[in-house]
Amino acid sequence: MQILDDYINKVKSLPPAPRILAQLLTLLNDAEIDAGRIVDLITFDPGLTAKLLQRCNSAAAGLAEPVYDLRQAVSLMGFNAIYRMVATVVGEGILGSAQRGYGISSGELWQHCATAGLAAKVIADKLGAETELVFTAALLHDIGKIVLNGFLEGAYEPALKLTGVSGQSFLEAEKSILGVEHAEIGGRLLARWNFPETLVKAVWHHHDPARACPHQQLAGYVYLADLIAHCLGQGQGYQSFAIRGRPEVLEMLEISPKEIEDFVIQTALSVEMANWIIPHRS
């Protein structure tokens, strides 16, 4: 689909590829985790390493003594906690800016994605899914918006303000205006950045998980995490609730509406504990 790749190629200020996340996900998946390679990979980026150590030493991390290097941090906190910390530092760098074409102010897209990431972790922990993969997919699920933002800004905003009311979902409105939508573009971008196929498909179909077959389970988690973030108020921008309900997702994941409410509660508590989400300001 040349037209879709053209959109990605035309964006002037695409962020640097978060290749480190794709590489770390692969390393975490190995039967025997190679601690040395993980530490080497992260410390190759001194800026990232400094931010990680700063977060490890924050009161919220709860470590009894200060850490001075990454190897020590990994041994105290474990690979998975360090991986999630890397993902949040990298994610904030990519998703932190305003997306005016969507009516999203600075920090808001990141707050949404970070909340979805936490919701996804809650779901994955409860349902026994691969936590880091689910967390990453939810964290990056709206990355396509940074590609399409510039094309929507200005002329198309009045049309976007009518979505939902007009009977069109937000995704359908994007498609009718631009011929593409953010979920597919996001999936294509992540494929280009060498993320695993299952994560690519989950992001690609996060508004219609059944179409992600055979990766519909992961897409279902991301879909639910996206809705939960919206429920908790982290779904800013024009008509952002104009998302199609997919009741079949509950059946597919074998969860009840009551469990969804439990996920909402657990996510709200996780957000309160997370020191890495930018706080609200007026």
């Binding site: 979902s169 429920c231 998302i243 199609r244 309900g245």
Partner: peptide, 14 residues
């Protein structure tokens, strides 16, 4: 109490 586009009411917390 915002809501999604869902007639089935599967996610009708709002």
């Amino acid at each position: 109490a915002s809501h999604f586009m869902d007639d089935s009411g599967f996610f009708n917390i709002g």
